[in-house]
Structures are given as C-alpha cells and as structure tokens.
Computed example of a mutant assay.
Amino acid sequence: MKLMMLAFFIAVAISSLLILLSTLFSKKTILDREKVSPFECGFDPKNTSRIPFSIRFFPIAIVFLIFDIEISILLPLGLISNSIPPMQWMISGGLFLLLVTLGLYYEWKEGTLDWIT
C-alpha cells in the first residue's frame, strides 16, 4: 500500500513539474485582433480565414467512434473466456454485437451514412 502511494505521489510530482516547465518555457502569445486575423497588407480581410467543411462529417465521425469503442469493449471478452461459462460468454458477446448492428442498421436506414444527398 505504501509503495502504491509513493508511486502515486511521484507520478503527480513529475506531472506537475512537466506542466510547470512547459508553461514557463512555452512561447508567450498575446491574442489580439491583429495577430489572429490573416495578413492582407494591413487591410481587414475580405473573406473568412477558415475553410468551411461539410457538417455531414460529424455523424460519420460519431459512428466511427462508436465502432472504435465497440472494439475496445469486445477485446476483453477473449481474456475472460476461461473464467465464465461458454454459453454466457457467447450470449453476452452476441447480444452486444446485435445491439451495435441494429444501431448501424438504424443509422443506415435513416440516411445518416449517406454522404451525398
């Protein structure tokens, strides 16, 4: 227990030291209107400096994140396969995959996955 507490305090001390050092040695910037705006010979910019992109990207990104998290949830099932009965292991894994597949089917039928519409 004492070893864990010591390791915790060392980790907190090293993290705090790194945060302090990075703030001290970082490039200091003062955000004002001139520094944030694009340079156009001293005049105000005519257009926005950011390039807009399709809002349809966000549902695709969220579906990707859901399936990415699904993989991280399914990976431990292989590790616990020896500690629980095989039927319970298969039912829990299959039920989880069925729920995720039904969610994907719903997204597909709703039209969220169609990029060009």
Rank of each mutant, 00 (worst) to 15 (best):
M1W: 09
L104P: 00
S22R: 03
F25A: 02
Y106N: 05
G93L: 00
A61Y: 01
L65T: 08
E107M: 03
F9D: 05
G111K: 00
L18K: 06
G111I: 01
T112M: 13
V63K: 01
L65W: 08
S72F: 04
M87Q: 13
I10R: 09
T112K: 14
N47G: 05
W89G: 06
F58P: 04
N47C: 02
F58A: 07
E107W: 00
E40F: 10
D114C: 12
G42W: 05
I80T: 10
R56Y: 10
P85M: 02
E70Y: 07
I14H: 09
T29W: 10
L31F: 10
K46S: 13
V36L: 15
P85H: 10
S37L: 13
D32C: 09
L3S: 14
S15G: 15
S26K: 09
V12S: 11
F9P: 02
L79R: 12
L21R: 10
T48S: 15
L98R: 01
F43E: 15
I116F: 15
K35M: 02
I73H: 05
V12P: 09
L18G: 15
L95T: 01
K35A: 12
F8R: 04
W115Y: 12
S15W: 09
F53T: 08
Q88A: 08
L65R: 11
L77K: 04
F64T: 00
L113Q: 01
L104K: 02
F58R: 07
W115V: 04
L113F: 06
I10N: 03
L3R: 13
Q88P: 08
A7F: 12
G103H: 07
E110I: 04
M5R: 10
S22G: 07
L18N: 09
W89C: 07
L74Q: 01
S26H: 12
A61R: 06
I69F: 10
Y106D: 06
P45H: 06
P52K: 06
L24C: 10
M87V: 09
S54T: 09
S92A: 12
A7N: 06
G94N: 07
